[in-house]
């Protein structure tokens, strides 16, 4: 029964991948090799689509793999069932583990020990978020190949993506200092940036 197997495979993926959605990638590669449900090349395409659609990447990947695998078993109905089963498999371990941790936190959250642990943990958590943001920023503002440039300022400057930097500066001003726009929903700025990206061909495509 392919759908049971699909649930099981994604349950294991959800259980053992720790961290962001990209942490599921090695597990999916192994799944491709072990089951033959899809090829690694197909997986690369699925990753590209998952990164360019709304929603958490890990969930998008699970849905897509489930859709592809289920489809080969039973047409369009199989596709939809496969997508649902794979996604539920991926999130089931999260729900179980988090519900257990959350219940324990409710019980012991007021204890001195837990409070002091969180006192140290919170700054670290913000630092980890900042570091994740920095690695995105590096990809966005610096063009590939900078590692080959010597420490020559004139050369280094050519690797900076100035258009992206200007957009970022404008967004920063709009979200932080302009009274009329800073209260706007983040999705407004995302929409604006998408439009600017299309208009000025940000990907060079």
């Amino acid at each position: 029964m392919i759908f049971l197997r699909l649930f099981y495979e994604f349950f294991m993926t959800g259980l053992f991948s720790v961290g962001g959605g990209l942490a599921t990638l090695p597990f999916l590669q192994k799944m491709a090799d072990d089951t033959g449900w899809f090829t690694r090349a197909q997986l690369a395409d699925m990753l590209a689509v998952s990164e360019s659609t709304p929603g958490p990447i890990g969930v998008n990947m699970a849905t897509y793999v489930g859709y592809t695998t289920g489809g080969s078993a039973g047409g369009i109905l199989g596709s939809v069932l496969g997508a649902v089963v794979a996604t539920l498999g991926l999130i089931a371990p999260s729900i179980i583990v988090i519900v257990i941790i959350a219940s324990m936190l409710e019980k012991f959250g007021e204890s001195k020990l837990v409070k002091s642990a969180f006192y140290g943990l919170r700054p670290a958590s913000v630092a980890l978020i900042a570091s994740a943001g920095l690695s995105v920023a590096l990809e966005v503002f610096v063009k590939p190949g900078i590692a080959n440039a010597k420490l020559d300022i004139a050369k280094l400057v050519t690797f900076v993506d100035w258009r992206a930097l200007i957009l970022a500066a404008v967004l920063l001003i709009l979200t932080r200092w302009v009274k009329f726009t800073k209260k706007l929903h983040p999705i407004c700025f995302i929409g604006l940036s998408a439009a600017v990206g299309i208009l000025f061909k940000f990907a060079g495509a």
Binding site: A164, A168, S193, F202
Partner: peptide, 23 residues
Amino acid sequence: FSHLAWVANAFAGIRVCVCVLIL
């Protein structure tokens, strides 16, 4: 889907915004 030019361009713009929002 992801090979469409406008999708790639839109997401290149969105990634800039995501940096600013995370900051």
